[in-house]
Design a protein around this nucleic acid. Sequence first.
RNA 1: GAACGGGUAGCUCAGUCGGUAGAGCAUCGGACUUUUAAUCCGGUGGUCAUGGGUUCGAUCCCCAUCCCGUUCACCA
Length: 529
Amino acid sequence: MGENPRKGDALEGPTLEGSNVARMNANVSEDIQAEQQHSTEQDLRQHRLDKLARIRARGEEPYKYLFTRSHTIGAARAAFEAAEASATAEEHPGVAAALAGRMTAFRRQGKSSFADLRDESGRIQIFFNQKQLGEDAYEALKDLDLGDFLGIHGNVRRTRTGEITIFADRYEILTKTLRALPEKWHGLKDVETRYRQRYLDLAANPEVMDVFRKRIQVVSVMREFLTGHGYLEVETPMLHPIPGGATARPFVTHHNTYDRDLYLRIAPELYLKRLIVGGFDKVFEINRSFRNEGVDTRHNPEFTMMELYEAYQDYLGLMDETEEMLCTIIERVTGGTIFEHHGRTIDIQRPWRRLPLFEAIRTYAGIDLEATRDREEAAKRARDAGVDVDATMGYGKIVDEVMSAKVQPHLVQPTFLYDYPIEISPLAKRKRDNPQLTERFQPFIGGYELGNAFSELNDPLDQRDRFLQQVKLREAGDDEAQYLDEDYITALEVGMPPAAGLGIGIDRLAMLVTNTTSIREVIFFPQLR
RNA sequence: GAACGGGUAGCUCAGUCGGUAGAGCAUCGGACUUUUAAUCCGGUGGUCAUGGGUUCGAUCCCCAUCCCGUUCACCA
């Protein structure tokens, strides 16, 4: 943790104020009067501890075990509106309700008070009145603090100003809170606190909750889509003896009993294809992969990927399915076929543009990398196009680099690039009429690379050659090159039917539909230092 | 890993051309029986990220460190 005490650490000291000793102290309210009026963070907390003790001193449990709600807040509002709609002008309908939530505002008005109550479904105003509650209960409102969880029994009606409000007959404290929520008007802005203490972010910033709801919906619509199309959801290992399925550096961990190193998976690909070998026709998995690489607005060390494999399918058929699936998800989550991202309007109307990779490079980079397979010539052309090329890059890497730098930023409207060079696609099948290319595509939206797909290489001999190519790269110092996985080749020798596979980056898709530009905004607890 | 920007009250932010800091909200006390960023009156609250240095004096200048952000590198 280093020398720097993080925000919030200041209050970690031992506190016995909540102990039985303090609970028994019935004179705490006098102590409060006598106490100096401070408001450091410690003192703010002490005030709440004193209130807690007072609540206990009068025999009330400040951490209740159960509260039976009649409605969520949203449901109570809906129920009231329904009653109102069917009532005549003279009637003043009310809906009896028991609601629970966090108190997020309190406006004392002498012998009446207003508060705001929030639960997951929304916000409602509470009206407290001395006459209705009785003097003692009304007085005890002083022991409430912003952030406390309350249960309210009362009637939902409109106030004179027209606001739907629960008129409290009685209330109970469900959870006494010891720390304040961030400020009500500006919310919590400090990004470090927002990410490290996401609970504060969620509690203080309703729009953050909306972002995560959309992310959750992306996953559930995707799951629904795939299940509805006959895919079976499976789970394969996250601890891999040999990292495989992607070009990336893995995290290493260690198993004690076996006394061997294992790797957190960089992709589920090779295991999922083993299932196709075993006889499953359509499988998918939605889960985390881990890559031990840089962190930026598009990369978190652990990220969520969906991978699917379909037997007897090729990449062109899968391109159609991908388009359909992504349209379904985006339309359901954003509510239409047109949405905004990063100040740009994106239209997902089908059919999407489909562009061979090399044609895209000719169009956007103004160079032809297809006509030459020569590494030096390709490097020269890339430099002519203004792309940095270093000595370690092979031909495939140069193509990839030019694509990322010159093509990808233009792919704002949904686009499939397809037919990638064989050098950077060691698990993809060769294009049927051009052995230098593979049957591979990637969907791009909003300039984001959303996924990767191909006709799966199922020729075990070719696969071994491709792995050996990777091993050569590894021996030459490329620590992202793939490992040779003997068992995987054995599986292919047992025989994998023709198949196509797809991987989709869930986090990036979530960024798109939530109009956010940092991956950390769509991951509850992003990795920080 | 590099460059640039940032770290001031519980939260959101001002500010100090070097003389140990302010506001709003929150909080505490008071007034108020229909408010909703309630209002009004009166208070409390700060190792100005951390450690050194320069200086009569540092929150401010210098150096180092930590953390965050952006861009780049690497990658999905």
